[in-house]
């Protein structure tokens, strides 16, 4: 465990806490894509199946349980408890366009052709594009609340910090995993446009509004 990975994990955790607090305090999930949240829940459930078979560390186990539980909780809050506030008219991205290609890619490019490994690979590919429905929703409405922007910034930073972790591990331990590195680059690149708007607008106290 190095500092980049720890910061990445904490940033990821912070993103989830910010999102949960936003929904809970405002009693509303307006501006949040339920499609992206469903994809994230699928990502964590398929990736952390190894909770049952492999013990890595208490930290690892704790975080996995937190990510699975909170992703399911968010989907529950959006589709059941605060369903009336869910912005389904704008959340129209077709998730099968992400689910099917990532599944096919996982079947073709993986470390080992076993069910657990293919699901793990699928989760890595799916995670890299899971934010697209959310970005699509922001582009459709043309704006995002600042709390939603903070959530997206923390969520986007997490894989960016993991990229630094992989560079560090490559030089320090000669460890690398091309599947996660390429997917992590794709994932981080998808946030670049948002990062630019966040730094130039939200951090200066303005609302994130897309140019008309």
């Amino acid at each position: 465990m190095n500092v980049f990975r720890l910061l990445g994990d904490l940033s990821h955790l912070l993103a989830i806490i910010v999102l949960l607090l936003k929904i809970w305090k405002t009693r509303s999930c307006a501006g949040i894509s339920g499609k992206s949240q469903i994809l994230f829940a699928i990502v964590y459930i398929t990736r952390y199946l190894d909770l049952i078979t492999t013990y890595i560390s208490a930290y690892n186990m704790f975080m996995k349980i937190i990510f699975i539980a909170t992703s399911i909780a968010i989907v529950y809050l959006m589709y059941v408890k605060f369903k009336a506030t869910y912005d389904h008219n704008h959340d129209t991205f077709r998730i099968e366009f992400l689910l099917l290609p990532t599944l096919v890619l996982a079947l073709l490019i993986n470390h080992e052709f076993t069910i657990v490994e293919i699901l793990w690979t699928f989760s890595i590919y799916l995670e890299s594009v899971a934010i697209l429905p959310q970005l699509f929703l922001v582009s459709k409405t043309g704006e995002a609340e600042s709390i939603t922007s903070h959530y997206l910034f923390a969520l986007g930073s997490y894989r960016g910090l993991y990229l630094l972790n992989w560079i560090y591990r490559y030089y320090g331990e000669n460890y690398y995993d091309l599947i996660v590195i390429v997917a992590g680059i794709v994932q981080t690149v998808l946030y670049c446009d948002f990062f630019y708007l966040y730094i130039t607008k939200v951090l200066k106290g303005k609302k994130l509004q897309l140019p008309a």
């Binding site: 990975r5 994990d9 990821h12 190894d50 078979t53 492999t54 890595i56 690892n60 975080m63 996995k64 990510f67 993986n110 470390h111 080992e112 076993t114 657990v116 490994e117 793990w120 993991y162 972790n165 460890y175 690398y176 995993d177 091309l178 996660v180």
Partner: peptide, 10 residues
Amino acid sequence: VPDAEEHDEL
């Protein structure tokens, strides 16, 4: 290259 089914990262 890591072993399959032993992913230590989140």
